[in-house]
Write a protein that binds this DNA or RNA. Structure first.
Length: 546
RNA sequence: UGCCCAAUGGUGUAAUUGGCAACACGACUGACUCUGGAUCAGUAAAGUCUAGGUUCGAACCCUGGUUGGGCAACCA
């Protein structure tokens, strides 16, 4: 087994503003188990985890939950988390996904120790399979997949044994080599572990451990034609790498006995039979993330992308990590959210509102405020000199004094939100209304004097007079005014395209149904954004409203 | 009729491991007016799926049941 090393290069405490800041928080059941293993001196007190994505799609917010656990456990207990691509199925996997996955993990603030691939172990797994055949623990089955499925039985009925189950070892050995040499067509034969066709656990009914795939592999090319199945690759890969805690989601609970059995066999073959209980990976399962109104399955996300329902994996409506990134979510907000939902063994359905509250909480603390008018109507300050411009000051973040301020321009003609003016207002309407005063944020107190309407009765211009003694900072500015509205100067703003996205799915628990997508929410709206320069590309800003 | 897992306010988690059921989100009141999707003050909301048992004492341990989830890909 490999020696343990600390591979971490970055200082997480500074790169992640909110990482693990609540020390009083109770341990989740996995952390408790890790601490117990540490107390008991398991695995020579090493902690090693892995994040094992299959490179067949982009990472989604559910993967973020697994990433935070795999990397978080390693970080919090002085261990290492490696990245291992589970690339045992060349028909679905490619390098585009490998690169995207790495980018997303790093964006979340994590750095893996080593970058491994299950395909790195194809030779070792092959040797192990050969050894199993020699020991009478695996055999080549030449039946069709239909026949094998039929013999598997059902959850309530035992299976029946394959007629090839007890064929001579030499024969299996020879055929296994042929499976890999390219002489055997896909589907013609498989290698099966000889376990127990009557076992109540379906995964023990002589599981298929190798099959023929003729599609070239994105890393090993055409070197192999026989590829190991997940169950025959994952646990052994963990073992080869020295993983101590193999964390995965609940649907793998029923796979665990098989995971353990293959590691047992491997340890026996390697002469570690006298120490079966220690120095081996242990699988622990936690609940995967379900979000209401959100479908997480990679299969269906792929369909959305391929059929053009969305504009790519990073469409802001997608629950992918890159989608949330484009939507303006910060890594910190994702961490906050993951921290709030916790890890249990209960298959929960989380409220999307909790995720939204996490990004609001984070942005409220760190985002620079910039004025934008999304649904503009013209406001003319009739007593302000034409052609005059003055510079005013606007603080960048009311929650953070150190964030400083920026200059903004004020002039006679402004844009304000349509909904910030009402000719006949209801009670408790404190915004612009004829005869009433309102404060223009960071500028003057103005009194509304009326408006102009078009032939349809639509308000096209609003008029007001300003009080020159009430500029922000002046003593008169402290006068009590019931309402404050935001604005941008017409001569000093830029047009922006705004898209107000709604949720993609309109059923609370879509699970695996693709149907009933919302089809609205992608129509651009023209908005007015105050021109701030220089504004760094991709800065995180927050409109003061909307 | 199989095997495995789970169940605590509307949602998600917690309860110093057998000792007064707490926190967050959400909802609702109200206040505040240099915005607010903020802040502040407050309210409602579970008696822990159910029936027993053990115990001075059970959300927690035991037994039966109920309900939900997972398991029968040459996917992972």
């Amino acid at each position: 087994m490999e020696k343990s090393h600390s591979y971490f290069t970055g200082d997480f405490s500074t790169s992640l503003r909110f990482a693990r800041n609540d020390e009083n928080k109770s341990l989740n059941f996995i952390e408790a188990k890790v601490e117990e293993d540490l107390r008991n001196g398991k695995n020579a007190k090493r902690i090693q985890t892995r994040f094992p994505p299959e490179p067949n799609g982009y990472l989604h917010i559910g993967h973020a939950k697994a990433i935070c656990l795999d990397f978080g456990i390693a970080k919090n207990y002085g261990g290492v988390c490696n990245l291992r691509f589970d690339d045992t199925n060349p028909t679905k996997e490619n390098m585009e996904y490998v690169d995207a996955i790495k980018e997303d993990i790093q964006w979340l603030g994590y750095q893996w120790g080593n970058e491994y691939y299950a395909s790195d172990y194809f030779q070792q797994l092959w040797n192990f399979a050969i050894e199993l055949i020699k020991r009478g623990k695996a055999y080549i089955d030449e039946q069709s997949s239909e026949e094998i499925a039929a013999q598997k039985g059902t959850p309530t009925q035992p299976g029946t044994e394959s007629p090839y189950r007890n064929r001579p070892i030499e024969e299996s050995l020879e055929l296994f080599n042929k499976m890999n040499s390219g002489e055997i067509e896909e589907g013609r034969m498989v290698l099966r572990a000889k376990i127990d066709m009557a076992n109540p656990n379906m995964h023990f009914r002589d599981p298929i451990i190798y099959r023929v795939v003729k599609t070239p592999h994105h890393r090993t090319g055409t070197k192999w034609n026989a590829y190991p199945m997940y169950d025959f690759a994952h646990g052994q890969s963990d073992y080869f790498e020295g993983v101590t805690h193999s964390l995965c989601t609940l649907e793998f609970v029923v796979h665990r006995p098989l995971y353990d059995l293959f590691v047992d066999w491997l340890k026996e073959i390697r002469g570690e039979g006298d120490n079966m209980d220690d120095n081996r990976p242990r699988q622990t399962e936690f609940n995967k993330l379900n979000l209401n109104y959100t479908l997480m399955s990679k299969r269906n996300l792929l369909i959305l992308v391929k059929e053009g329902v969305v504009n790519g994996w990073d469409d802001p409506r997608m629950p992918t990590i890159c989608g949330f990134r484009r939507r303006g979510y910060t890594p910190e907000s994702i961490h906050k959210f993951i921290d709030k939902i916790g890890y249990t063994t209960y298959d929960a359905l989380n409220d999307f509102a909790l995720l939204e509250s996490s990004i609001r909480e984070d942005l409220n603390a760190c985002a620079t405020r910039v004025a934008a008018v999304v649904n503009p109507v013209k406001l003319v300050i009739t007593n302000y000199p034409e052609g005059q411009t003055e510079e005013l000051e606007a603080i960048n973040n009311p929650e953070d004094e150190s964030a400083g301020s920026h200059k903004i321009e004020f002039s006679r003609e402004l844009w304000i939100e349509k909904e910030d003016f009402m000719e006949c207002p209801p009670n408790k309407y404190f915004r612009l209304t004829p005869g009433k005063e309102v404060r223009l944020k960071n500028a003057y107190i103005v009194k509304c004097t009326g408006c102009k309407k078009d032939e349809n009765g639509e308000v096209v211009e609003v008029y007001a007079e300003y009080d020159p003694m009430t500029r922000s900072g002046m003593p008169e500015a402290n006068r009590k005014v019931k309402g404050t509205i935001h604005w941008v100067s017409q001569a000093h703003c830029i047009k922006a395209e705004v898209r107000l996205y709604d949720r993609l799915w309109n059923v609370e628990n879509p699970r695996d149904e693709l149907a009933r997508l919302q089809d609205e929410g992608n129509t651009p709206i023209e908005a007015m954004l105050r021109n701030i320069s220089p504004m760094r590309n991709r800065s995180i800003i927050s409109s003061s409203r909307e």
